[in-house]
């Protein structure tokens, strides 16, 4: 619903801008390129995939940057502009999937991976510690190559020191 209203408003605005080019030009220069880029870098070019709008060199992207400039000049917030772009051109223009539907996976899975990793680390070490079997022969004692013995000596020395 909201999208439709936005659209109607924006169309009205576009007509307004078009009908009165003199005024439009008065508005646009007040928005600096930096302000435009701040929004543009959070948006992706809908046709040349995986290129953020702020660095995309094509004519189409230049037009979209101008669109962002107009919206900023009209006082739109970054969120509003992003939503507008997503409605106009599809969800792929957003740098990160919006929090809805299947997209939850993107937000939920990474923390789960981390938690799973911690769990694995703890269980592996714990289980390994429990099952320490009395070793007949410590593998350390097996003849090590010369440099290793040197290092061992050094490490021993270090521990003594402490």
């Amino acid at each position: 619903m909201r999208g439709k209203n936005l659209l109607i408003i924006s169309m009205a605005i576009v007509f307004f801008c078009f009908a009165t080019p003199v005024r439009a030009q008065e508005i646009t220069p007040t928005v600096s390129d930096d302000e435009v880029n701040r929004v543009a870098q959070e948006l992706y070019c809908p046709v040349c995939e995986n290129t953020p709008l702020d660095v995309c060199p094509t004519k189409a992207c230049a037009q979209w940057r101008e669109l962002i400039r107009e919206k900023i000049a009209l006082g739109w917030s970054e969120q509003q502009i992003k939503r507008f772009f997503a409605e106009q051109y599809g969800g792929q223009v957003l740098a990160v999937p919006p929090l809805q539907g299947l997209n939850w996976i993107v937000y939920v899975l990474p923390p789960l991976v981390v938690i799973g990793g911690i769990y694995l680390a703890v269980t592996i070490v714990k289980r390994s510690r429990k099952s320490v079997i009395p070793e007949k022969k410590d593998p350390f004692q097996s003849p090590l190559p010369a440099p290793e013995t040197v290092m061992k000596q050094i490490e021993k020395d270090l521990h003594k020191e402490e």
Binding site: S10, V14, F15, C17, F18, A60, E66, E70, Q88, Y89
Partner: peptide, 10 residues
Amino acid sequence: YVDTEKDSIT
């Protein structure tokens, strides 16, 4: 197709 309305109408 993926365009701005202002430029399209122009």
